[in-house]
Design a protein around this nucleic acid. Structure first.
Length: 419
DNA sequence: TCTGGGGTCCTAGGACCC
DNA sequence: TCTGGGGTCCTAGGACCC
């Protein structure tokens, strides 16, 4: 059996842990730059705030309904996620952290356990020790555990936020209840196509012939079908080193000058380099993109990306920043108002088994330099040591008007209690 | 004025090999 | 009228997830 544990309205719940006065009140969390809604409490969902709503369009609505608005505080969410995951890891030796707020546990060898009770125990412990409410679905396959989780979330009082699919009867009933567009792995495009073929529920989907599914939804769809039929097809996945690493941002204002973009691109490249060193990889290619604001139909639009094959694999901040600047020079065009840019590194090789080239090679002095830099930054705070081409004067900022304290990761932000 | 960020996998088709 | 058979590798684009 598999369990899928999912934190309810995770970012909104994290904010609420340290603000119990907000219990029962609508909360939304905004994306970077305070752009759009990326998380909502149940109360916020109930008053009709959609996912992805543009903050400026809903400003009046927020005020009218006394909605508490927060800027995204990823330092807080990441730390709270670790706490939840650490607790859950105690409940099974086999775990897959699926996203910041979700994990699968494999429950093999639990034949003599009452899994429903076990789940309720997990839920109680996590909620009591972290303040984060969770829902749990338990079933013979991953796709069914996802479905069971959805039921637990939808009917919290009837299920105690834990639902187990352990008979075929329950499985069929659950499948008939689930709309096709809500099936894990069925997105908008597939749902649309399936509906034109008369498939409206997960159950309808499981009744399709294998070859039809294989033809229209490929091998991924076929695996999903089997998993929903109760035949375990998807297993826990090991943590793999990433195959792409990206740092991309929208800007608070439009940038028109090369130097402004160059500073951003340098900083993004530095961030990618750091992430690469973290997983002990080097990259062989690097992509830089820039584009104007696609929502502004009144402005001239320009969008381009360029992929650079590097002469040698590297994870040096200095080298990647240099290559990224070269790439930017080749795509930058004067006369546009740029709103977004990013750096993506790809085509990785392990740090320790680098193939040397005959005529060009990386500068061996960079390695100890980067190690020293990473050490300093981890001891004295991020961005303590950076390149001169980065934002030394700290001009660049993100719009974050409603940022909450970093309660759990910054000493000066620790909550104070008035007795 | 203002609209996020970071990932994965699969497939078809082109270019190439013998 | 009729023009082989069997591969690999790479990339762009499309689908999906949170």
């Amino acid at each position: 059996m598999f369990a899928l544990i999912d934190c309810n309205n995770f970012y909104a719940s994290c904010e609420r842990v340290f603000r119990p006065d907000l219990n029962g009140k609508p909360i939304v969390v905004l994306s970077n730059n305070d752009g759009c809604v990326i998380a909502r409490s149940n109360e916020a969902k109930a008053i009709g705030i959609p996912m992805g709503a543009a903050a400026f369009e809903y400003e009046q609505m927020f005020i009218h309904n006394n909605v508490q608005v927060f800027s995204a505080n990823f330092a807080l969410y990441g730390d709270m996620s670790n706490r939840v995951m650490n607790l859950l890891a105690e409940y099974s030796p086999e775990m897959e952290i699926y996203s910041i707020d979700e994990c699968f546990l494999k429950l093999s060898g639990f034949d003599y356990y009452n899994l429903q009770t076990y789940g309720e125990q997990m839920r109680n412990t996590v909620t009591k020790w972290t303040g984060i409410p969770i829902s749990i679905g338990i079933a013979p396959t991953k796709a069914l555990a996802k479905l069971a989780n959805r039921i637990a979330k939808k009917f919290p009082s009837r299920t105690q936020s834990v639902y187990t699919i352990d008979t075929d009867e329950k499985r069929i009933k659950a499948l008939k209840w689930l709309n096709i567009e809500d099936v894990w792995g069925i997105g908008r495009q597939h749902a649309k196509r399936l509906k034109t073929h008369g498939v409206h529920t997960a159950f309808d989907f499981t009744q399709l012939p294998d070859d039809w599914v294989a033809k229209h939804l490929a091998i991924v769809g076929l695996r999903l079908k089997h998993d929903l039929q109760g035949i375990p097809t998807l297993d826990l996945e090991e943590i793999q080193p990433k195959k792409n690493i990206a740092t991309t941002r929208s800007f608070e204002t439009n940038y028109t000058e090369f130097e402004q973009l160059q500073e951003r691109i340098t900083t993004f490249a530095a961030s990618c380099a750091e992430k690469l060193r973290n997983q002990k990889s080097c990259c062989n290619s690097l992509m830089v993109f820039i584009h104007t604001n696609g929502h502004r139909k009144d402005l001239p639009q320009y969008s381009r990306n360029i992929v650079l094959q590097l002469p040698f694999p590297t994870n040096s901040t200095l080298e990647l920043a240099g290559f990224a600047t070269q790439a930017l020079k080749r795509i930058f065009k004067q006369g546009y108002a740029y709103k977004k840019a990013g750096v993506i590194v790809q085509d990785f090789a392990p740090e320790n088994t680098l193939q040397t080239k005959l005529f060009v090679s990386r500068n061996e002095k960079h390695l100890p330099l980067m190690q020293a830099m990473d050490k300093l930054n981890s001891a004295y705070g991020q961005q303590k040591v950076k390149l001169a081409s980065q934002d030394l004067k700290r001009v660049w900022k993100m719009k974050q008007e409603k940022l909450s304290p970093r309660y759990t990761t910054k000493l000066s932000d620790i909550i104070t209690i008035n007795v």
